[in-house]
Design a protein around this nucleic acid. Sequence first.
DNA 1: GTGAAAGCGCTAACAG
DNA 2: CTGTTAGCGCTTTCAC
Lengths: 349, 349
Amino acid sequence: MTAETPSNPATGDSGARTVPTLEMVAALAGVSRATVSRVVNSSPKVTPHVVDAVNDAIERLNYVPNRAARSLASRRTQVIALVVPETTAKLFSDPFFATVAQGIALYLSDTDYTLNMLISSEAKSEKTRRYLMGGNVDGALVVSHHSGDHSYSELGQSLPVVFGGRPLIATESASYFVDVDNAAGAAGATAHLVETGRRHIATIAGPQDMPAGLDRLTGWRRTLSMHGFDQSLVELGDFTPESGADAMRRLLDRGVPIDGVFAANDQMAAGAYSVIYERGLSIPGDIAMAGFDDNYYGSTTTPPLTTVHQPSHELGAKMAEVLVALIEGKTVEHVTLMPTNLLVRASTL
Amino acid sequence: MTAETPSNPATGDSGARTVPTLEMVAALAGVSRATVSRVVNSSPKVTPHVVDAVNDAIERLNYVPNRAARSLASRRTQVIALVVPETTAKLFSDPFFATVAQGIALYLSDTDYTLNMLISSEAKSEKTRRYLMGGNVDGALVVSHHSGDHSYSELGQSLPVVFGGRPLIATESASYFVDVDNAAGAAGATAHLVETGRRHIATIAGPQDMPAGLDRLTGWRRTLSMHGFDQSLVELGDFTPESGADAMRRLLDRGVPIDGVFAANDQMAAGAYSVIYERGLSIPGDIAMAGFDDNYYGSTTTPPLTTVHQPSHELGAKMAEVLVALIEGKTVEHVTLMPTNLLVRASTL
DNA sequence: GTGAAAGCGCTAACAG
DNA sequence: CTGTTAGCGCTTTCAC
């Protein structure tokens, strides 16, 4: 502790400052404030000897730059906003946001950027928008499940913004986004079903007005068409277990052979399980099941569900990475897709 | 280079300012900057007429105060740090932090404070500490499960800090903390067991070097002693399902009657289930079970587990509330305990 | 390479 | 009640 620094350089300061300033460092090191600033910002053109002296003074004073002052002078905030445009209820029931946020925070903790979390219910979206546009942040990350909600997309024109989850309709791609490769994940899960010998593979698809629903169906189709298999075994659900059960019922009622099912999420797969057992069929004996998401709906079924794991934290980290690159003026892809990985469990043995 | 966005907000700043300043508002409203500042900060002593004029100008210019400048001048940052001193692995596997963080963010979104999330692995704890002490935040919230880790407790002497989770050893209570009322929750669950007619109530306690483990055992004892029941049926576990199974085995091996068990968390309760069934006993017929935490370990058992729900997001909100009060110089209790609530399910019918 | 000087946008006494 | 006057702590030309 540098408690009593009697050699405290007199700066004409009367009140006892608790936090050392750049000026004090300059005085202690015997250089000008400009030089200290250069050292702090690791400017290349400072004599090594001087750098050491300054760093020494910084160390002894336990100096930490004042962010506000730095921002004000440099016109850069070093702050990145994480905007979560969701209702309270949704937020609490969804581990997805949390994991993504952690990924973001973790990535940023290795940079000089600071994370500013903004929970923005619809009521406050205007306030949030203003805050963002008010020059208080260097860039923003927007995470939303109903990624159709690109009400923040206009933002991209006045501020670097990266979205998590692709927009439903491909805009003029003025914006940047990072998403999980839903189609590839679905195709992979379906391919696994094929590899284990299934030939009559159905799908319980998600809502076709959500990117995830759409793309996962596309992935299923891709694999089947690659093998020339029948693509007519499609029933839609709304991502709830009940809808999965209903869809499964409709599939079985068709009376055609089915030996494998790819459900667009684990909850629907769990719903389907009950119907399959209801009909006296077995998993994976009669029907192999695969899901998507990797949550406890899939891990607690009997047998455990083969499913597609989403790299939520990597997604967050990548979003942050892309945004930082954008802020720093680098060229980055407008679209970044994160690879998923298949978790093979007993439901597809 | 990025796309052809002429107003590219990235580094290269060539043209006119995009963000209006207080000065511009003053000019438009025909008053001084000081007056605008007063209006913005809702000072009581401004003529209503002038207030309107200024607000009008603000509206027309779409003015938003610059935080950095404001902080610098007022020597208040309006920033609250959320410090999570955990390893990456723990962070990802634990929904607790996420929920608490959401509660905090949500509470703060109604205030003028901004949330600054700092994931601080041990490697970076020194950097974090410096940042916090460097006058970059008005206060800090520290959330950790192994709340014994009050390595940040010294912070409390130079900055308002509120901890989530009580310290293991009662310090000189120089610090503030908010915690779930573990003892009361445990006492309540045990009382429920008593109310349903159980008279031989055992407990599978948690590690006694963790506040949660300690306090939940205390709660169990409290209820039993209130009824004058036997308090010798205690076995310790380490919060894992396996340890719960082992503890249950030891309890049953004692060969004394047991008709109810309070487990200090749901995971241990789940472990106990398997042993109970192994011995050919039924739940709740032979033994009623109650747990603590309310997670899926308890909700997916058969029968579903009666458990104590932790108000994680309320905990977060309360932490934020206490910190804000502290920052604003109000007197607040050093200890705030959040009430839990009992979720009665089939395991204690 | 280094220092001097001029602010960044706002708040905070202090006069009037 | 409102304007004037100083800075807050740092970066950043521009000379030297």
